[in-house]
Design a protein around this nucleic acid. Structure first.
Length: 280
DNA sequence: TTCCAGGGATATA
DNA sequence: TATATCCATGGA
């Protein structure tokens, strides 16, 4: 769908602007693998998040963000964090500094916890283009029709589906995970989960069928804004294949959090993007 | 055509 | 605790 096709939508009543700096780049932020519900439009991106939508227009000196809820997207894009300060903490790490130079404009999005749980369940052993397709099919099928786009489905509507539904959306063997997790989450209170410490919250997440340490850490980072995590996937394994040979992903994750501390999540994302995009 | 992907569950030792 | 195998699917 083109921008003009949705420009007249009743949901795009407000807009705000963000000055361009080296520390925020919409393309990097969306394309770095942390989020799956966005499409490229002529002058920027169309972003769907939970039940919200935004059109991000890339002007020469600024971004103009048309959306249904400016407060939601100001928080979503994380304009509060001082990324220059975070990046300044890693000047002495040679490889990390190269990765920062390459992905300087990445922000860690503040995504909806439930949407993040289902997105990263689908992500396991899967390619990013296909992950996007599966999520889109699920949203189109059972997400609320907002007039021009579909919201991410509510937990109730996800829990009402059987395994066959998720399989027909292309989820493969993960259909069983999605179905079971939807049903078990209806007994949980996300607001209470948000109050938990990182380790305790990880245990909660890993108790869900199909959620291991890596997926739990992605959910912690992107869905609960916990930065003291270091998700280790196939790309991060490649980054550390010489430094940490023959080490399990879980063990590597623990070790890397010890090494990079409270800002581990940022480091992980810079390295992931650098390795995957630049293929170094 | 084969390989591989933002892995995890399960069985086995 | 550590390792091997299986899992659906489609992009490259």
């Amino acid at each position: 769908m083109t921008a003009s096709a949705v420009d007249d939508g009743a949901f795009l009543m407000q807009s705000f602007e963000v000055e361009k700096t080296p520390y925020f780049d919409v393309a990097m932020t969306l394309e770095c693998g942390q989020v799956f519900r966005f499409v490229k439009i002529e002058d920027g991106y169309r972003v769907m998040a939970k039940d919200h939508i935004a059109l991000v227009h890339d002007k020469s000196d600024r971004y103009v963000i048309e959306c249904d809820d400016p407060d939601y997207f100001k928080r979503y894009f994380d304009f509060e964090t001082d990324y220059a300060l975070v990046q300044s903490k890693f000047k002495d790490k040679v490889f990390v500094e190269s990765a920062i130079e390459f992905g300087r404009g990445i922000h860690i999005l503040r995504q909806d916890p439930v949407e993040t749980i289902f997105s990263f369940l689908i992500s396991q052993n899967n390619h990013i283009p296909r992950i996007k397709g599966i999520i889109e099919k699920i949203c189109s099928a059972i997400g609320e029709d907002k007039g021009g786009y579909h919201a991410f489905p509510t937990l109730e509507s996800l829990a009402a589906q059987d395994e066959k539904f998720f399989a027909e959306c292309g989820a493969g063997y993960r259909a069983n995970y999605l179905c079971r997790v939807a049903k078990s989450l209806t007994h949980e209170n996300m607001e209470e989960w948000k109050k938990l410490g990182t380790d305790e919250l990880r245990q909660k997440l890993m108790s869900l069928h199909g959620v291991g340490r890596k997926v739990a850490d992605c959910i912690l980072l992107f869905g609960f804004s916990r930065f003291d995590v270091f998700p280790v996937d196939t790309w991060i394994k490649k980054v550390f294949s010489e430094e940490l040979p023959d080490m399990s992903a879980d063990k590597m994750s623990v070790l890397l959090v010890q090494k990079y501390g409270q800002y581990s999540g940022f480091v992980q994302q810079w390295l992931f993007y650098y390795k995957r995009e630049k293929k170094v």
